[in-house]
Design a protein around this nucleic acid. Structure first.
Length: 280
DNA sequence: AAAGGGAGCAACCGCAGGTGG
DNA sequence: GCCACCTGCGGTTGCTCCCTT
């Protein structure tokens, strides 16, 4: 028995989403909440496959998404987690609550993969030594390093969002999505083919990604409108729920502990943040 | 100024897992 | 337990932009 297609191929639009479609989707989800994707195209009138709607939502429109400008901490964390978990991008993304798996996957494929594969010196936490450490450093040291980087990433994210370090709370990530939509609408209203780009120098608007004060500017680092569409997002941020600090971290820890020859001793804690690279 | 090539990213595709009847 | 449906995930593709020649 063959699997039925996820949607009727006839009349289903493909390709880049238009601002109009985004607005329709956001409006629909505002009203009904995310989920039941099968019904979204039918009920919203979007000529899109349900999977396409879900993907658009989770990777672009969902509240709490930070795009572009991966920080050094995030970068290191991704490298470590990728080495640890492999290409399990969803699992990796669970440690970076503001990032989508697709974003991380793309970033890995375009930046980090080659970076890791290239022998190089001079970075603050050299990947060459990282690679060698993957083999030679004792597991305890490596795990400490990972845990430290997880903590560092958490800290960096907290600083970036200027919100309390409780991931269980509702971080400012929520706002970043309203900004995404806002910028989308701004561009749409102006009829610009590049709706998301606003010159930060000429506008008085703030940079949405406050963690991105570091040098390189990705094309995804857009300047956001100061007009959050709070009314558009009056529902709970499921991504924020997902990012409850306890769950993913304890999962990883237990996963690691499973490999600890049974003693199950907690060894991650009490490692000074700055020790990470010294281990390598 | 134009063409070619590479990089980056959004989106699609197909498979796997979960769930309810 | 089986089946159908829905959702999630990872790999891949293709488009657009930018840089180099």
């Amino acid at each position: 028995m063959g699997r039925p297609p996820c949607c009727d191929k006839n009349g289903v639009k493909k390709g880049p989403w238009t601002p109009e479609e985004d607005i329709i989707l956001v409006s629909y989800i505002q009203e009904h909440g995310p989920g039941n994707w099968r019904a979204v195209p039918t009920n919203s009138g979007l000529m899109r496959c349900s999977k396409s709607c879900r993907l658009r939502w989770t990777n672009y429109l969902r509240p709490g998404i930070k795009r572009g400008n991966f920080t050094g901490q995030e970068e290191k964390l991704i490298i470590h987690l990728q080495a640890l978990l492999g290409n399990r991008w969803a699992a990796i993304a669970s440690y970076l609550p503001e990032r989508t798996d697709n974003d991380i996957k793309n970033y890995w494929n375009t930046h980090l993969k080659k970076k890791v594969s290239e022998p190089e010196t001079g970075s603050d936490c050299p990947k060459s030594s990282w690679q060698s450490s993957h083999r030679s450093v004792s597991k305890g040291q490596w795990e400490r390093c990972l845990q430290t980087d997880v903590n560092m990433a958490k800290r960096a994210l907290c600083e970036a969002s200027s919100v309390s370090c409780s991931f269980g709370g509702k971080p400012s990530t929520y706002a970043s999505n309203t900004e995404n939509i806002s910028r989308l609408l701004q561009g749409w209203m102006k009829g610009s083919p590049k709706p998301s780009v606003v010159d930060p120098a000429s506008s008085g608007w703030g940079v949405a990604d406050s963690a991105s004060s570091q040098g390189s500017v990705s094309t995804s680092n857009r300047i956001m409108s100061p007009e959050p569409l709070e009314s558009v997002f009056g529902f709970t941020d499921s991504s924020a729920e997902r990012s409850e600090a306890g769950a993913p971290f304890s999962l990883l820890e237990s996963w690691l502990l499973d490999e600890l020859d049974g003693d199950g001793q907690e060894i991650f804690l009490d490692v000074p943040v700055l020790d990470t690279c010294q281990l390598f």
